[in-house]
Simulated assay, not measured.
Amino acid sequence: MGGASQNNLLMQFQADLLGIPVVRPTLIETTALGAAYLAGLSAGVYAHVDELQHLWQIDRVFEPSISREQAQELMHKWNHAIRQTCA
């Protein structure tokens, strides 16, 4: 249930490599939550999608903390490692 998203190091690494904030919601099992919200909409529990907006909350935002040059170098090394394992 959202194991990778609970790893702060991994979330920060993604933010650094992507160069954008990575948002982790309070409830990390968003696939099941989305299905439940859709079922609630279909069953009339919620009248409109806008009613669901306040139910989603942010646990933490991971902001990029390295330069784009550093991120590109890390991606280069990552791609090299992948090529080595596939060779």
Rank of each mutant, 00 (worst) to 15 (best):
M75Y: 14
R24W: 02
F13L: 13
T85A: 08
M11E: 02
G40P: 07
A81P: 00
A47I: 08
V22T: 04
E69Y: 09
A32K: 11
L9V: 09
K77Q: 14
I28R: 02
L74F: 12
F13V: 04
Q72V: 04
Q53M: 10
A15F: 00
Y46A: 08
L9M: 11
L52T: 00
Q57T: 12
R60L: 11
G19I: 04
E69F: 08
G34A: 12
G34K: 05
I66C: 05
Q84I: 08
L9S: 12
D59T: 07
Y37Q: 07
T26I: 14
Y46N: 04
I58E: 00
Q57C: 02
W78S: 13
Y37A: 11
H48G: 05
Q84P: 00
Y37L: 14
L74P: 02
L38C: 07
E29T: 05
S65C: 06
G34V: 15
Q72L: 09
V61G: 03
Y46G: 03
F62L: 01
T30V: 15
L55E: 12
I82A: 06
A39R: 07
H48K: 15
G3P: 00
R60M: 15
H54V: 11
V49G: 03
L55N: 06
P21R: 03
D50K: 09
A81L: 09
A32C: 15
H48P: 00
Q53K: 08
A43V: 11
A4K: 03
P25R: 01
D16N: 05
A36P: 03
F13D: 03
V61T: 14
M75F: 14
G40K: 05
Q70S: 13
T85L: 03
R83S: 12
A87P: 09
L17N: 01
T85P: 00
R68Y: 11
I28G: 02
D59V: 06
M1E: 03
A71L: 05
I82P: 03
I66D: 01
T30N: 02
L38S: 04
H54E: 13
D50T: 12
D16L: 00
P21F: 06
T31Q: 06
R83D: 10
I66F: 08
A43T: 12
Q53P: 00
Q84G: 03
V22D: 01
A36Y: 11
L10F: 12
Q70I: 08
H48D: 15
L10S: 05
A87Q: 14
E29K: 01
A15G: 01
A39K: 08
L33N: 01
H48V: 11
V22N: 03
I82M: 07
V45R: 13
I28H: 03
H76V: 09
E73F: 09
F62G: 00
Q72A: 13
A43L: 15
P64W: 03
S42T: 15
L52A: 02
I58Q: 01
H76R: 10
Q6V: 10
G2D: 11
V49T: 10
I82N: 09
L27I: 13
Q84T: 10
I20T: 14
A43S: 13
L33E: 09
V23T: 08
D50L: 06
S5K: 01
L27M: 11
A87N: 11
G2N: 08
E69N: 12
G40A: 13
A81N: 11
A35W: 07
A35P: 02
T26F: 12
A15S: 07
